[in-house]
Design a protein around this nucleic acid. Sequence first.
DNA 1: TCTGGGGTCCTAGGACCC
DNA 2: TCTGGGGTCCTAGGACCC
Length: 414
Amino acid sequence: MFALIDGNNFFASCEMVFNPALRNRPLVVLSNNDGCIIARSYEAKALGIPMGGPMHEWRGLLTKHNGAWRSANFPLYGDLSSRMVSVLRELLPAVEVYSIDESFADLNGVITGDLPALGQQVRDTVRQYVGLSVAVGMAPTKTLAKLANQYAKKNGGVCVWPTAKAALTVVEQWKVGEVWGIGHRNAAKLEALGFGTIGQLVQANPTLVRQVLSVVGLRILEELKGVSCLPLELMHAPRKQILASRSFGRPVVRLDELQQAIATYAERAARKLHQEGQLAQAIGVMLRTNPFRGTDKQRRVSTMVGLPVATADTATLIRTAQAAMAELYAPGFKYAKAGVVLTNLAPQQGFQPSLLEPTPDRPALQQAIQSLNARYNQRLVYHAACGINPKWAMRASTRSPSYTTRWEGLCVVH
DNA sequence: TCTGGGGTCCTAGGACCC
DNA sequence: TCTGGGGTCCTAGGACCC
């Protein structure tokens, strides 16, 4: 048996934990640059505001209904997420962190009759210790546990299906698009073939499902029938690529500003690389205009450069990224977004260095910068190439304080 | 005026090897 | 008139997830 524990309206709920004035009203959380709506409270969902909708189309409605909005605050959400996980680890035998707001747990060894009470205990404890509301779904496979969790969200917060048969009596009529791993394109394909509901899909010929959805679809089919194909993954697999990209706060035309931006993103990517304990053997740079501005001339380019020696040296990565940016740049366009991707990653530990090329890595320097920044909890030391107070930086006009990760964000009690 | 960011996996096809 | 069988590696594109 598996459990799926999922935070309800996660980002929106995180904002409410330390700010009761945001509760019981339509609240949305905005993407970077305050452009899109990436999370909604119940009240905001009830107004019909869609996931991913552009904020400028919904501001009026929100204002009319006493709504509120917040710029995304990922340090806050990440910290509350790890508090939630630590509660789960106390109560459940084995926990896999699947995303910032979702964890799977292994329930083997727990007596079936005890599962509903365990689910309720998880809910109560997370609410008491962290201040967040979660839904708990339990079933014989991960795919069924996901569905159970969906059902739980609207039906009391806990749902236990001891068998696939029990699950199917509830979800038979649900659309296949509700199933984890079936997106809107494959849902349309299945519907056209006469498998529009979960009940119809489990009756389908596996060979046909394989033809249409590849082995991925075959696994989903088995999971729906109660055959577990997706084990709990307790080991955190090393990342295969690291991406750092951002939209600009305003259109950027000049190369020198693009060079600052790409240096900033390279620095961010390098920091993630250090945290992962990996080296990069290739670096990519991409650049594009705003595709939503139909009247503007459009351009979308990218390039990938191999590094002569696998490295995690921030300055080397910045230099290489800037050289690539100079190649990509063409004047006369209003650029909206750029990014850096590190690939062909290899673990630092035990990496075979080149016989001919000296490594550019300077661990002592990196360590010094990192410990200064860690100690003062901010970007105290950084590369001048990144620019100082850049004009292209993204907008975040309504960011809440980092209540739990910065001294100046601590709540004050009057 | 205003539209995110960061990942994974699978398949087909091309290039190459013996 | 006639041209095998078996394999690997890499990349691009498509699909999915949160």
